[in-house]
């Protein structure tokens, strides 16, 4: 496939936004249980929600650049019964609304306990946050399933797609949360930092597993099944267009194998290897700038990762477009 930058940015930005929200909610739940220090509503949660919304909004904005007719985008909510894309189109604004409500409740300090003072974590913000987490999971599933549900793009048709979208999103969110908390909630830096490192390493395990899986794929379709001729030697001589077509532009990245391999190693280093020592160094030295650097390095790595995710997928339609003449 030819990676579309709009979709690359959509998936990476909303992943980080979702991860940041999950990190905030985990910290709040930890605070309610007395395991973590309780944070200020405005300075940490409201600001954090705003940051999360910024990322989600950026992703949403990027997605519009993918459309030929962005003014008709509202129509995309229609087919939620069958289309994962339609479900994502519903889940993303719904999640954004939940994050907004969560942030607004914290900002306004509306946190009356719904179940009486005896039950910690019964406040309005917990309920809104809980709904937000559910919507966040829904959104991860929808985003992943858009790709995982296409069975003949075999690089995508695997649970790894879902797992990796989720893990990478949450990991990048926790790295961001570490940097954010260095400014907004210094007491949480160690907690977020430890989880950011852990999640990044777990994500590495699953991403590496998916790379190994994809390396071993034996594609179901080949030129024999594509044109229905049983012969081991078939060569395309003409594809019915001299200057290329939508089919050659959309489904081929046009880069060399070396370029693809380079991107793979670049994203492995930037997303998984580089952020860990950076975070470690930041945690031990307490330099806030290093957290931000770790997040930026990882985010650039994630963009490369998503680019590679698309570029690596071999669409069976490519079998029909092997020679231009």
């Amino acid at each position: 496939m030819n990676p579309a930058l709009s979709v690359v940015f959509l998936t990476t930005l909303i992943g980080a936004g979702q991860g940041l929200f999950v990190a905030m909610y985990v910290a709040q739940a930890g605070g309610a249980m007395g395991a973590l220090p309780v944070q200020d509503g405005v300075r940490f949660y409201a600001l954090g929600s705003a940051l999360s919304l910024l990322l989600l909004g950026g992703g949403l904005l990027a997605s519009f650049f993918h459309l030929g007719h962005p003014e008709r985008a509202w129509r995309a909510v229609a087919m939620w019964r069958t289309s994962w894309l339609s479900r994502e189109v519903i889940a993303l604004p719904a999640f954004m609304a939940a994050v907004f409500v969560y942030g607004a409740l914290h900002y306004l300090g509306w946190n009356d306990n719904l179940f009486g003072a005896a039950s910690p974590g019964g406040g309005w913000t917990y309920v809104a946050g809980g709904v937000g987490v559910l919507l966040c999971i829904t959104l991860f599933v929808c985003t992943g399933m858009i790709y995982a549900c296409i069975k003949f793009i075999e690089e995508w048709h695997t649970p790894f797609t879902l797992i990796n979208f989720t893990l990478l999103g949450v990991a990048s969110g926790f790295v961001l949360a570490t940097g954010f908390s260095a400014f907004a909630a210094p007491a949480l830096v160690k907690f977020f930092g430890a989880w950011a490192i852990t999640l990044t390493l777990v994500a590495l395990i699953f991403r590496a597993a998916s790379l190994l899986r994809n390396k071993r794929i034996r594609h179901m379709s080949n030129l024999q099944t594509a044109i229905g001729v049983k012969h081991t030697k078939i060569q395309q001589k003409a594809q019915g267009a001299m200057g290329g077509s939508f089919n050659t532009r959309e489904f081929f990245h046009g880069k060399s194998a070396l370029f693809l391999r380079s991107v793979k190693w670049i994203f492995l280093v930037l997303t998984f290897v580089a952020p860990v020592p950076l975070l470690w160094l930041a945690l031990s030295s307490g330099a806030a700038a290093l957290f931000v650097l770790a997040h930026l390095v990882q985010f650039i790595g994630l963009i490369a990762e998503r680019w590679f995710f698309f570029a690596q997928a071999k669409h069976p339609q490519n079998l029909y477009y092997q020679t231009i003449s």
């Binding site: 007719h69 962005p70 129509r75």
Partner: peptide
């Protein structure tokens, strides 16, 4: 008139039978 030009259907066609119109964007 309903197509938003997201190209998802073309990804979901193993035969490459769908082509976007680069001017009408559908």
């Amino acid at each position: 008139d309903k197509c938003i030009g997201c190209k998802y259907c073309s990804w979901a066609c193993p035969y490459g039978a769908r082509e976007i119109d680069e001017h009408q964007k559908v």
